[in-house]
Simulated scan of single mutants.
Amino acid sequence: MASDGWLALLLLLNTLPLTQWMLGFAGWYDSHDAYSTFMFYFPFSHWLALGPTFYFYFRSLTNQDFRFGRAEKLHFLPAAVYLVWRLVLFGYDIAWRHWSLGEPFTGHFGTKGALAGLSEGVDGDLELLGYISIFAYGRLTLRDYQRYRRYLDDN
């Protein structure tokens, strides 16, 4: 069932930020090796994808004819841009500068490249946009829920 896939994605998106906290408390930031580097480059926060995922989960539960098509994919464009941004950070700092050119990391005890520090400010702004997105999709979901309730009452 399509709603099962949306629920699985919703659970994954909600557990990734918790995973970052738990790995941080497990000492991954303080290990000063590949674990620390992983913590700086893995995209743990997916706030921009959380709103559309919740909305489409609701739609898949309440509408048997709901299909995830091209127009619906556009809702995930901001989240895809964020993932590309994180991939560029990884590609430049780790794949290009560290692996190809052999340059050592300069930040956080030799585990963090130049662009990883730049991403911290951008990630904060993206998180704010994600909260706005969640609010907007929450309003859409509430609107659709009210329509669905009227439909149930009428039928």
Rank of each mutant, 00 (worst) to 15 (best):
F54K: 04
Y55K: 08
P78L: 05
F66V: 08
V84D: 06
S60Q: 03
F68C: 13
R70K: 14
W47L: 12
S100C: 06
A95H: 02
S45T: 01
V88I: 09
F66K: 13
H46W: 04
T53C: 03
F66T: 09
Y82E: 05
L61N: 09
A49Q: 03
A71S: 15
F90Y: 15
S45K: 00
F76P: 06
L74F: 11
Y57D: 09
W47P: 00
R59D: 06
L50Q: 02
R86Y: 00
E103D: 07
L87K: 15
S100G: 06
F68R: 09
R86S: 01
L89S: 05
I94D: 01
A79C: 04
V81F: 11
L50A: 02
F44T: 00
P78C: 07
V84Y: 02
L87E: 12
R97C: 05
A95R: 04
H75N: 10
H75F: 06
W47D: 00
Y92D: 09
L101D: 04
R70G: 10
L74G: 11
W47Q: 00
G102M: 06
A71K: 12
Y55F: 11
L50S: 01
L101Q: 11
R70T: 12
E103S: 05
L83N: 02
S60A: 09
W47N: 00
T62F: 14
D65P: 08
L48E: 04
F90I: 04
Q64T: 07
W85K: 09
L61W: 07
